[in-house]
Design a binder for these strands. Structure first.
Lengths: 198, 198
DNA sequence: CAATTTACAAAGTATGTAACTTGTAAGAAA
DNA sequence: TTTCTTACAAGTTACATACTTTGTAAATTG
């Protein structure tokens, strides 16, 4: 029987929190599963009953962050305003969340960048989620659109430069409103183009 | 008087060639200015009369590669076909040049990636060149466009995901025609949108 | 006197070894 | 029986030291 007296799910949750805490304090590069275990007062080996390894723990951390961001984003889908405004808000919100995260928790954001580079499943799943949400919003903005999935992929492609974690990091030093204006310009031009084609 | 018997310009040219040769053979990471000098049968210190340092030599290498690429691209500006086709061809050609370079001379391409990451002047200058050429082609494709420079910047933004050296490297494993089709889709949608706005 | 060399300081990289981390297996505890 | 621990092999990292490379200055050559 357990020494921690915690349900597996609970310990998993605490391990993720501990890992986040460690990443925030000592940095992503110096995260040791030994230290995470120590923070929970268990031996490092105990964590291997809950995570398949370090990569899995990091995936859980990134997955948690993506889930939290997802919450924030969902609001924009059902928010107020015209459909086109909602799509715009959703995209702007996604950009802002990343920029904020990159500034507020750079170490945590770095973990996300690494996960993204390695195309880990966590990130892939969320990319598909994003595309689905974009597709939903596009249908609302352009009701007689021919192929919503195709249109969503197209929008994703065109806005990739605003969304890719590394590139977000790159133009972190240019003012938000400038980047956001560029994003809006591209989006509106795309929508105008899609309306013509539909 | 010179021991090499070469005009400064000529030695500079040979140094660039030697550097390219070294990069191709031993790799970008292992390039030593000592070795480049040895290949020219001069002491490494002699190169400091022609380049301000290693970074400057690398800039010259990347600049040379960009100049050669530029030649290939210029053809598309005055090529045959409708203006829209020429713009499309120009953009596709730019993508192909990068993909080919990344496959054929990965080490040389890496040098370009590094220069791009560090926002070196060489790369900046060529980005502006590109935008000007796009602007020229846009004016031809949409004669009554309001602000060609703005439109060119917009197209650059939307196609950044296809053009950024690192991202080109990322989807090198997806087939050319798939990537090119996506680029064409985005471009045509943008042009349709720009036509509406003009 | 302009191009080059040798000589040299500062910065960077390679190497070997000790200490630490990761992941596994066998066994103890509740 | 499940959760955890200790013990351990394999792989990494940290660190001191020796060696390379970079960049500069003074001396040299045609």
């Amino acid at each position: 029987m357990p020494r921690t007296g915690l349900a597996p799910k609970e310990l998993r949750r605490r391990a993720i929190e501990a890992a986040i805490h460690r990443i925030k304090t000592v940095g992503y590069a110096k995260l040791r599963v030994t230290d995470v275990a120590a923070e929970l007062d268990v031996s490092h080996a105990a964590l291997y009953a809950h995570f398949s390894g370090k990569a899995d723990l990091l995936d859980a951390v990134v997955g948690h962050w993506l889930d939290v961001s997802q919450e924030d984003l969902r609001a924009a889908v059902s928010g107020r305003g015209t459909p086109e405004e909602r799509l715009e808000n959703w995209l702007i919100q996604r950009l802002r969340l990343k920029r904020e995260a990159a500034v507020k928790d750079p170490e945590l954001y770095e973990a996300y960048c690494h996960a993204s580079d390695r195309m880990r499943d966590v990130v892939q799943r969320h990319k598909m989620l994003w595309r689905d949400q974009i597709a939903v919003l596009i249908v609302q903005a352009i009701p007689d659109i021919k192929d919503p999935t195709h249109a969503a992929r197209l929008v994703q492609s065109a806005l990739y430069g605003f969304n890719h974690p590394r590139l977000v990091l790159d133009d972190l030093d240019t003012p938000s409103d400038e980047v956001e204006t560029r994003l809006r310009d591209v989006l509106h031009t795309l929508i105008a183009g899609l309306r013509v084609a539909s």
